[in-house]
């Protein structure tokens, strides 16, 4: 699919540029032509030939399809669908890294800061972080042999 989108985008751009150039050429030719069809004071736009018109429309359509195909997947707009995808798959990688070489992850539970939903009570509530408890747990784990 990304390949098809890239092909459509390139083709669309090339043909659109070509159609615009042709229109410009055609316009400048007919404007300087001595055989003007219009005799009124209002300058009338010369009509674009059918082949350029078709090229314009087709290239725009190809470009539009390519852009739609190459856009990222839509996010759910229903709360329950969105939140259930968060709980089912957890945080996903965004494929980017910070300067400290840390992976940037996608969004997670926005209410984690309440600390109501973690394995141990109150964890995630940063303002009330129980550092001594956390260190106690760590020391106990090390003494127990450091296995998971």
């Amino acid at each position: 699919m990304p390949f098809l989108a890239a092909v459509l985008n390139t083709m669309g751009l090339v043909f659109l540029t070509h159609a615009i150039y042709s229109t410009h050429e055609h316009h400048s030719l007919t404007a300087s032509s001595p055989y003007k069809t219009s005799t009124t004071a209002i300058p009338s736009f010369p009509s674009i030939p059918l082949d350029i018109l078709i090229e314009l429309l087709a290239s725009t359509l190809a470009l539009l399809t390519g852009i739609v195909l190459s856009s990222p997947a839509l996010k759910p707009i229903q709360w329950s669908t969105w939140s259930s995808s968060l709980s089912r798959s957890g945080r996903k990688s965004e494929g980017k890294y910070t300067k400290e070489n840390i992976e940037v992850l996608g969004e997670g539970d926005p209410f984690q800061f309440l600390g109501l939903d973690s394995v141990r009570e109150g964890e995630g509530r940063r303002g009330f972080w129980d550092g001594r408890g956390a260190r106690g747990e760590y020391v106990g784990w090390v003494k127990a042999g450091g296995k998971a």
Partner: peptide, 20 residues
């Protein structure tokens, strides 16, 4: 389960991941 991350750490950091 992905690796614990320093930018967006999980609510519960197990001793193992804290060490990591």
């Amino acid at each position: 389960m992905s690796q614990p991350n320093l930018l967006t750490p999980p609510a519960h950091i197990s001793p193992q991941s804290a060490l990591h």
